[in-house]
Design a protein around this nucleic acid. Sequence first.
DNA 1: ATGTCTACTGATAGTAGA
Length: 261
Amino acid sequence: MRIATWNVNGLRARLDYVRIWLEARQPDIVGLQELKVSEEEFPASAFDDLGYEVVVYGQKAWNGVAILSRHRAEPTLRGLPGQEAFGARLVGARIAGLTFATVYCPNGKDLAHEDFGRKLEWYDDLVRYWPSEVGADEAAVLCGDFNVVPAPIDSWRGEAGDGSIFHTPEERSRYGALLDLGLRDLFRESCPDTRAYSWWDYRAGAFPRGHGLRIDFVLGTSRVLERVVEVRIDRDFRKKQEGLTASDHAPVIADLDWEAV
DNA sequence: ATGTCTACTGATAGTAGA
């Protein structure tokens, strides 16, 4: 079973690129973020042609999350209660014996912006909501763009980044509270010392310079962690493919020893 | 400091967001 997460930065602009990636990597379940498309305009038929069911929580222009699945998907979570005004950022489904959810956590913009405080509150609500829906003893995955750099190794700036947006103690404590619910960062658990990033700014030549951050994660409960075969960040798909522009995020892929049930 | 990309609009260039 191959699962993945990917912030695609606009699904309509990225559709041909996403298709190339799906055909190359053949994932079973994918959490997508930043669709930037209404549900009416979501290209469901393109995914149907590729053999994927879709579960979508979209909105016009911004945000938006979806799950693609080769197995039957039964929708479960849709939105974070009380946080609807902050956009379509959480969707979940029951697939192949797994609880699979994907999130697009708020960016926060900068420390002085009102969205920074709203980001922390959004995280607080997620930490309250998740255990009300998903047990720590379940086989569950929460993947997505968390917009938090967990540790200096996850930032091109290393410790020099500490205190700046994505790297603050306030953000890290909220993210830590999420992990304390029994969720484990499958990449970091598999590769404790690997410096790898999942996002590079489009500007200032950040990608060729190695100026990246690791902010996209596949989190899993211990029942998922014990089934991990390999986790990797698919850096080749931050590059142009067949002349098509990449997202500013790379996909994160986790291979599990898991049979669909 | 900020070289790009996406999607929006009394669109066809400028703005906001990331």
